[in-house]
Amino acid sequence: MSASSAGQPDASLVWTKSSYSSNEGPQCVEMAAAAGTVHVRDSKNVTGPRLAFAADTWADFVSSVTR
């Protein structure tokens, strides 16, 4: 995992908001998949920091939380 500032946003990333997020609550998460990497950010602070996970690490995480 790595963390980065989105000061220079990657225009090639297509962000998708979590279906569990709402515009009314403080928890809003977006993710974007790129070659070998999944990026995660706060949708209410799109220019703020974001996390980047290796695709296999992200798949392991999703698998463990959906069981």
Rank of each mutant, 00 (worst) to 15 (best):
A32V: 08
H39T: 04
Y20N: 02
V46T: 12
V65P: 00
S21N: 02
A6S: 14
Y20T: 09
S43H: 03
A33M: 08
A6F: 10
Q8G: 04
R50F: 15
Q8P: 07
A59S: 14
V65Q: 03
R50Q: 13
T37F: 14
N23Y: 11
D10P: 12
V38D: 03
R67P: 08
S4C: 10
P9C: 09
T57A: 14
R41E: 12
G7N: 11
S63M: 05
A33I: 04
R67L: 11
E30Y: 06
L51Y: 06
W15L: 08
L13Y: 08
A35P: 08
V29P: 01
W15A: 03
D10F: 05
T66A: 09
E30K: 02
S43F: 03
S2T: 15
E30Q: 11
N45V: 13
A32D: 06
G36C: 12
R50C: 11
F61I: 06
P26G: 15
A34M: 04
R41K: 06
S43D: 12
N23K: 04
V65D: 00
S64G: 07
A54F: 06
V40F: 06
D42P: 03
D60Q: 13
S64K: 05
A52P: 01
L51E: 05
R41Q: 12
Y20W: 04
F53S: 01
D10L: 14
S4M: 11
N23S: 08
S43Q: 04
P26W: 01
S2G: 10
G48A: 12
P49V: 11
P26A: 14
M1S: 10
S43G: 14
S2E: 15
P49W: 00
K17L: 14
G36A: 09
R67A: 10
S19K: 07
G36H: 08
A33S: 10
Q8R: 14
F53W: 02
P9R: 09
S64E: 11
